[in-house]
């Protein structure tokens, strides 16, 4: 009974909706691309980055992936362009562009 949300959309017949509109899965929101909302875009300068990771916790959307203690480039599918990370970076490794 686990839910595959790719089978559910606003035109689905009632029989295809889940009981009580529960979702039997976690983290399905990743399939919704909030990156389309963005008006300003952060640009990541790998060379300036010292991997201090002060940018990673300030993101409201978790769009700065961290693996093995190192940040990677932005998740542009979901970044909304708020600019908090640019201000959090002590090394000028993030620049907001419109």
């Amino acid at each position: 009974m686990r839910t595959d949300i790719s089978n559910i959309n606003e035109q689905s017949p009632c029989e295809d909706l889940t009981e009580g509109l529960m979702i039997f899965a976690g983290g399905t929101s990743k399939q919704f691309k909030t990156g389309e909302w963005r008006v300003a875009t952060p640009v990541f300068d790998k060379d300036k980055c010292k991997q201090c990771l002060l940018c990673a916790p300030v993101c409201p959307d978790g769009c700065i992936p961290v693996h093995d203690g190192r940040r990677e480039d932005f998740d542009m599918d979901h970044c909304k362009g708020c600019g908090i990370c640019e201000k959090a970076c002590p090394f000028g490794a993030i620049t907001m562009t419109s």
């Binding site: 009632c14 909706l17 039997f24």
Partner: peptide
Amino acid sequence: KPVAVGPYAVSNYSMEAKYNQEA
């Protein structure tokens, strides 16, 4: 096996959900 209960649902889902409850 996480479950999420109690969503916000837009009109295109809500009416079908209410019918399912009546069914």
